[in-house]
Deep mutational scan, measured.
Amino acid sequence: TTVHVNGVTYHFPNPEEAKKFVDRVVKEAGLTVEVKGNQWDVE
Results as ranks from 00 to 15, higher is better:
residue 42 V to R: 05
residue 4 H to M: 14
residue 24 R to M: 13
residue 15 P to K: 08
residue 10 Y to F: 06
residue 37 G to Y: 10
residue 38 N to T: 05
residue 5 V to L: 12
residue 30 G to Q: 09
residue 12 F to Y: 01
residue 26 V to P: 04
residue 34 E to M: 07
residue 14 N to A: 02
residue 43 E to N: 11
residue 11 H to A: 03
residue 22 V to Q: 03
residue 11 H to G: 01
residue 19 K to H: 09
residue 29 A to D: 07
residue 24 R to F: 13
residue 29 A to S: 11
residue 26 V to I: 14
residue 29 A to R: 11
residue 33 V to F: 08
residue 33 V to N: 08
residue 40 W to I: 14
residue 2 T to G: 00
residue 19 K to L: 09
residue 36 K to L: 13
residue 12 F to C: 09
residue 43 E to Q: 11
residue 14 N to S: 10
residue 3 V to M: 02
residue 13 P to Q: 10
residue 24 R to V: 06
residue 34 E to V: 15
residue 11 H to K: 04
residue 37 G to T: 09
residue 43 E to M: 13
residue 26 V to N: 10
residue 18 A to R: 01
residue 1 T to L: 10
residue 28 E to A: 10
residue 19 K to A: 07
residue 7 G to C: 11
residue 33 V to M: 07
residue 21 F to E: 00
residue 42 V to H: 10
residue 16 E to T: 07
residue 15 P to Q: 11
residue 11 H to M: 04
residue 12 F to G: 00
residue 26 V to L: 15
residue 24 R to E: 10
residue 36 K to R: 13
residue 31 L to K: 08
residue 42 V to Y: 08
residue 8 V to S: 03
residue 37 G to L: 13
residue 41 D to I: 15
residue 20 K to I: 10
residue 16 E to H: 05
residue 22 V to F: 12
residue 37 G to Q: 08
residue 26 V to K: 11
residue 9 T to N: 06
residue 10 Y to G: 03
residue 20 K to M: 05
residue 24 R to D: 07
residue 27 K to P: 03
residue 40 W to K: 11
residue 36 K to S: 13
residue 4 H to W: 12
residue 43 E to A: 09
residue 3 V to R: 00
residue 26 V to M: 15
residue 35 V to L: 06
residue 28 E to C: 15
residue 30 G to H: 09
residue 1 T to N: 04
residue 37 G to N: 11
residue 38 N to G: 11
residue 11 H to Y: 14
residue 3 V to K: 00
residue 2 T to N: 03
residue 40 W to C: 15
residue 5 V to A: 02
residue 8 V to C: 15
residue 16 E to M: 06
residue 11 H to C: 15
residue 34 E to I: 15
residue 17 E to T: 04
residue 17 E to F: 02
residue 38 N to M: 06
residue 16 E to C: 09
residue 2 T to E: 04
residue 35 V to G: 07
residue 36 K to W: 07
residue 4 H to D: 05
residue 30 G to L: 08
residue 1 T to D: 02
residue 40 W to F: 12
residue 5 V to T: 02
residue 36 K to H: 14
residue 29 A to K: 11
residue 1 T to E: 02
residue 2 T to Y: 13
residue 35 V to T: 08
residue 29 A to Y: 08
residue 16 E to Q: 07
residue 30 G to V: 05
residue 7 G to E: 02
residue 29 A to T: 14
residue 24 R to T: 10
residue 28 E to Q: 09
residue 8 V to R: 11
residue 12 F to T: 00
residue 18 A to P: 00
residue 31 L to I: 11
residue 29 A to Q: 11
residue 4 H to Q: 12
residue 6 N to Q: 05
residue 11 H to E: 06
residue 20 K to Q: 09
residue 18 A to C: 08
residue 38 N to H: 06
residue 31 L to D: 06
residue 14 N to Q: 01
residue 25 V to A: 06
residue 28 E to G: 09
residue 22 V to D: 01
residue 28 E to V: 10
residue 27 K to D: 05
residue 43 E to R: 05
residue 22 V to K: 04
residue 2 T to S: 09
residue 30 G to A: 07
residue 20 K to N: 10
residue 6 N to V: 02
residue 9 T to G: 03
residue 19 K to Q: 13
residue 5 V to Q: 01
residue 7 G to V: 01
residue 10 Y to M: 04
residue 31 L to E: 06
residue 33 V to A: 08
residue 10 Y to I: 12
residue 26 V to Q: 10
residue 1 T to G: 02
residue 1 T to R: 03
residue 23 D to G: 02
residue 15 P to T: 09
residue 41 D to H: 15
residue 17 E to I: 03
residue 5 V to E: 01
residue 4 H to N: 12
residue 2 T to L: 09
residue 13 P to A: 13
residue 23 D to N: 03
residue 19 K to E: 07
residue 33 V to L: 09
residue 21 F to Y: 02
residue 37 G to I: 13
